[in-house]
Design a protein around this nucleic acid. Structure first.
Lengths: 228, 228
DNA sequence: GTCTATAATTTGATAGAC
DNA sequence: GTCTATCAAATTATAGAC
């Protein structure tokens, strides 16, 4: 399926009603995500973040208590924003799980394709880099990101696999889930390797489609009960 | 830039029969890899690195010209050290490539298992974290790491795939290589997700074996010509 | 070659005006 | 709430003794 519009989701920091122009706190978070994603927690500077937002550095202290608070606010923002978009896409599957292996396979392939497109989309580069950095040294921020984004995907795929490959035990299923979803995850987490292996400077639209098509094929192979 | 940086790399050559006491430059590199891996380039402090080595910070300036020079020396050290070990393991395959699909599949499964074990091994955690960080913002260091470590693996698998799946075209093969090797790579690059999905605090020995076994099974499925 | 001492920046936090 | 001004600490780089 094609990428969903992801400009629509907009949260406000403290349950405020929506604003036409994002509040300062929200603008700070968005600028911070960019900086944290590109330079890491230590590399990012609160001064630069404030400057990019067009405000003073002390605003960060006022709104978030400090650099760490801003960082966690970024994780929450990402988890909520992406989680909301993706949960909507998975809701039908979780509400009415397919009963037939063939249907489960089809649903999983679509879900996987959606997730892979998310991994490849340039628009998601910023927050996905943010998440990728958290993989190495998981902090409290990772918990929020995992439960908001990764866990729904992994658990949904796990549930579908129960239908598609009923003969596997739970451990085998979890391993297989990691193999399948991992093929999509690597498009982001190992992006530098992917682009070099595909011999392109950047993962353009055409290369992305090639990768998606190949991913579907591979996933299909893994979803079919071939061996006893 | 630092002309003395040569010295640090030269010490690491494997021609030496014994290592009575590693030179200061080498000890600095080893301590630096640890710090860079754990805290990133900006997060790591040259003072801490020097302190861990038991020397003064100015030694870094003397031997490597500065922080950046030390960082690149770390990349070279990792690329050389790991590249040498792994190139040895792959040399037989590249020297006498299997001619039969069945042999190629078997060789690739073994190679993949070796690589996956590398991704899971606690001993390789430090340098693999170093590499993982480079995936997000590839710098000059990534080039050296890619050509020293990743490229040999990917190209060898690509060659084996030419035998095992002869009907695929080059692009299809490269995509499939990324899918297969990606399943192993994700064990490191997405380690935090893996351990949570497998419901363990840390990827212990038993979990690692389970993942390896599952990986072999999945790879085998992807290596068999099932669909026309 | 390795050390001590210091310079020159940069950073996150804070105080206080408005 | 947002700003200006300043502080205290940490960092890299550098100079120079031995």
């Amino acid at each position: 399926m094609a990428t969903q519009a992801q400009d629509g989701v907009r949260i406000s920091n403290a349950g405020e009603a929506q604003r036409p122009a994002p509040g300062l706190a929200l603008r700070l978070v968005e600028a911070a995500i960019e900086q944290f994603a590109q330079r890491g927690f230590d590399g990012a500077s609160t001064r630069d973040i404030a400057a990019a937002t067009g405000t003073a550095m002390s605003s960060i202290t006022y709104h978030f208590g400090g650099k760490q608070g801003l960082y966690l606010a970024c994780a929450d923002y990402i988890a909520y924003q992406i989680g909301a978009v993706h949960a909507a896409g998975m809701a039908p599957i979780r509400a009415r799980p397919p009963q037939e292996p063939e249907q489960a396979r089809a649903a999983m392939l679509d879900l996987l394709e959606n997730f892979a497109r998310l991994m490849l989309a340039p628009q998601s580069e910023t927050w996905s880099q943010f998440i990728a950095r958290e993989q190495q040294r998981p902090t409290e921020a990772f918990e929020r990101l995992y439960h908001g984004i990764m866990s729904p995907v992994l658990e949904t795929v796990l549930g579908l696999l129960k239908i598609a490959r009923p003969s596997l035990d739970d451990t085998g299923r979890r391993t297989l889930v990691m193999n399948i979803v991992g093929m999509a995850l690597i498009l982001r987490l190992g992006r530098a390797c992917v682009s070099r292996l595909m011999r392109v400077d950047d993962l353009d639209e055409a290369t992305a489609e090639t990768l998606i098509a190949g991913l579907r094929r591979s996933a299909q192979d893994l979803l079919t009960e071939t061996n006893p």
